[in-house]
Simulated assay, not measured.
Amino acid sequence: MLNKELKYVHDKNYMQRHHKLQPSMRAILLDWLLEVSEVYCLHRQTAYLAQDFFDRFMLTQEDVNKDYLQLIGITALFIASKIEEIYPPKIGEFAYVTDGACDSWDIRRTELHILKALDWNLCPETPISWLKLYAQVEAQKDDENFLVPQFSQEMYIQITQLLDLCMMDIRSLDFSYSVLAAAAFCHFSTFDIILRVYNASGLTWESVSECVRWMNPFMDTLRSEAKPELKTFAKVKTEDRHNIQTHVTYLDFLVNCPLSPVVAVPPVLTPPSSTEKPANH
Rank of each mutant, 00 (worst) to 15 (best):
K116V: 10
D103L: 10
K66W: 02
D119E: 15
I114D: 11
F78A: 08
P124K: 00
F94A: 01
E84F: 12
E111Q: 02
Y96L: 02
L112E: 14
F78S: 13
F78D: 12
T75Y: 13
V97M: 11
M58C: 04
D143Q: 05
Y68N: 13
K116H: 11
L69H: 09
I83F: 05
N121A: 09
W120D: 06
N65A: 13
D67A: 03
I86Y: 06
Q136A: 01
S104H: 09
D67L: 04
D67M: 02
F78C: 14
L118P: 09
Q61Y: 08
G73D: 13
L69K: 10
I74C: 05
E85N: 05
A95T: 02
Q136I: 02
A95G: 00
A117M: 08
A80F: 02
L122N: 07
N121E: 11
I91N: 04
L133V: 09
K66E: 11
A139W: 05
E85A: 05
R109A: 08
Q136E: 11
C123I: 12
Q136T: 02
H113N: 07
I107W: 08
W105Y: 06
E111R: 01
L115S: 02
N65V: 05
F78R: 05
L69R: 10
L59A: 11
A135T: 04
V137F: 07
Y68L: 14
L122Q: 08
P124A: 00
Y87S: 06
K90M: 02
I107G: 10
I91K: 06
E93I: 01
M58H: 00
E62H: 01
R108Y: 14
E138P: 01
I91S: 03
E138N: 08
R109H: 12
D103P: 07
T110F: 04
Q140A: 10
Q136H: 05
I91H: 05
A135M: 15
Q140F: 09
C123L: 13
D103V: 12
Q61T: 11
L112S: 14
I91A: 03
T126M: 03
V97E: 00
P89F: 06
A95E: 01
E93Y: 00
T126I: 04
K116G: 02
R109C: 08
Y134A: 12
L71Y: 01
D142R: 10
F57E: 13
Q140V: 01
S104E: 15
I72T: 03
S129H: 15
Q61V: 01
I114C: 13
E84A: 11
E138R: 10
K116S: 09
R108I: 12
A135R: 10
F94H: 03
P88T: 04
K132L: 09
L131R: 07
K116C: 09
I128S: 09
